[in-house]
Amino acid sequence: MAIEKSTWTTKAGLAQMLKGGVIMDVIDEEQAKIAEEAGAVAVMALERVPADIRKQGGIARMSDPELILRIKESVTIPVMAKARIGHFVEAQILEALGVDYIDESEVLSPADDEFHTDKHKFKIPFVNGCKNLGEALRRITEGAAMLRTKGEAGTGNVIEAVRHARTVYGEIRKLHGMSEDELFTAAKNLQAPYDLVKSVAQAGRLPVVNFAAGGIATPADAALMMQLGVDGVFVGSGIYKSGNPAKRAKAIVQATTHYRDAAIIAEVSKNLGEAMVGIDISTLPQDQLLANRGW
């Protein structure tokens, strides 16, 4: 019996198993256990949540391998970790650590302002952020087995995640209605390979799972993103920068499962304590917008 490891089906398939779930940012074992206890489907191991990266500034890099391993030891659910855009050696290190997924993330400082990591070269699957369909398809072409909206991480403000989800799904709906000759120009405008554009147009959907990320802070935010069509939700600063992380985490998990049931979302939204303060994104200078990173 021949066994084939790290096939495309196993890479994209793990993301399929995470659907309908919440992936939570955690900075230590204690937070990881709270996340697992709340019903998270996976954790993202990192040294600082995006809100702190934003506040403290400086260069944000891959987390300490020791920290990632400790978090990996503390839970039974999958563990993801972030590498800088284009920093394929950080990605190699994360692969050597045996994490379950690598997030090539704009939340960290990019290491390359022209090239993303060639993700086909890795046995570990990658998730990448996207603001629109062109970015989504370019990342898939580079080997991403899962996507997420970029949103605007560390703001507790869902507006950018909404914009990115609406843009991606709106562009797919437009492609779906195009005639074959229009698809050639669509591929040119999307700056994405024609064959991939054509298959998305025919299927009317992305070939990989797409989660929401960047600014989700409440159960209602999570359900909003689910109703807009994403497959699941990343929550970063929104949980551990709030008044009662365990309770809020559990509520966001429930709202993601029952995203069309307003009575349940109302029930789980009661008495969650203070939400993270949040930032009005229009007050941020252009050079502090993380979503603009990645090409």
Binding site: I3, K5, S6, T10, T76, E95, G98
Partner: peptide, 16 residues
């Protein structure tokens, strides 16, 4: 037995 083969690196396909 959960995760009996290891982490994602050990996920696989086979004909059985």
């Amino acid at each position: 037995r959960r995760n009996a083969f290891g982490s994602q690196l050990d996920s696989f396909e086979a004909d059985i």
